[in-house]
């Protein structure tokens, strides 16, 4: 898949420099439907985000997405994924950084790099129960504080009353 990227020199440049700087942290790079998606190790996420912001000009974090992979039957697949959807302007390129997270496994908060990660991380914490260490104010954002369970996990029932 990654070979198609040569049509997009800007993205190719980003990917190759990511590979050269963070040799061990890059697990896999995928290029599908004009989107570059790079899976990286959880530990180095903050460094990679900082690198992308300062060196590559990805000045905004568009969104953070939580995923529950419990329905994926793959060897060594961790329970959750967190996706960072970055973009930059001028240039107008997007890139997706993916990390895999286990349950009860805290992730470094992206708040020091992108302020817009504040509520996005609170939302993921609320919906999936993924902890972000270093977040200034990690509380539930939608559900009440005494709510039990994490609604967007696959094992959370669709109907019912609490």
């Amino acid at each position: 898949m990654i070979d198609q990227i040569s049509k997009y020199p800007a993205l190719e440049n980003i990917f190759s420099s990511l590979q050269s700087v963070f040799k061990d942290s890059i697990i896999e790079g995928r290029f599908e439907k004009e989107e570059l998606s790079v899976k990286v190790k959880k530990e180095s996420i903050l460094l990679i985000l900082k690198f992308l912001r300062d060196e590559k000009g990805f000045n905004a974090l568009s969104d953070m997405i939580g995923l529950d992979n419990s329905s994926v039957n793959k060897e060594g697949q961790k329970r959750f994924s967190v996706l960072y959807q970055l973009y930059r302007f001028p240039g107008f390129e997007r890139i997706r950084i993916v990390i895999d997270v286990d349950e009860n496994d805290p992730v470094d908060s992206a708040y020091p790099v992108y302020k817009s990660a504040d509520w996005a991380e609170r939302e993921i914490f609320d919906m999936f129960g993924i902890n972000f260490s270093g977040h200034p104010n990690l509380r539930r954002i939608y559900m009440p504080d005494n709510f039990d369970g994490y609604p967007l996990r696959k094992d959370f029932p669709l109907e019912g009353r609490q």
Binding site: D63, I65, G66, L67, D68, S71, Q85, D118, W119
Partner: peptide, 28 residues
Amino acid sequence: ELGFYIKSNGTDKPERVKMKSPSFINMQ
């Protein structure tokens, strides 16, 4: 900016749909 992240799993239902709502981000 209104964004939709969709992950499909081969069935007729999406595995995950995440909406990036402009109001949410602007409100921050």
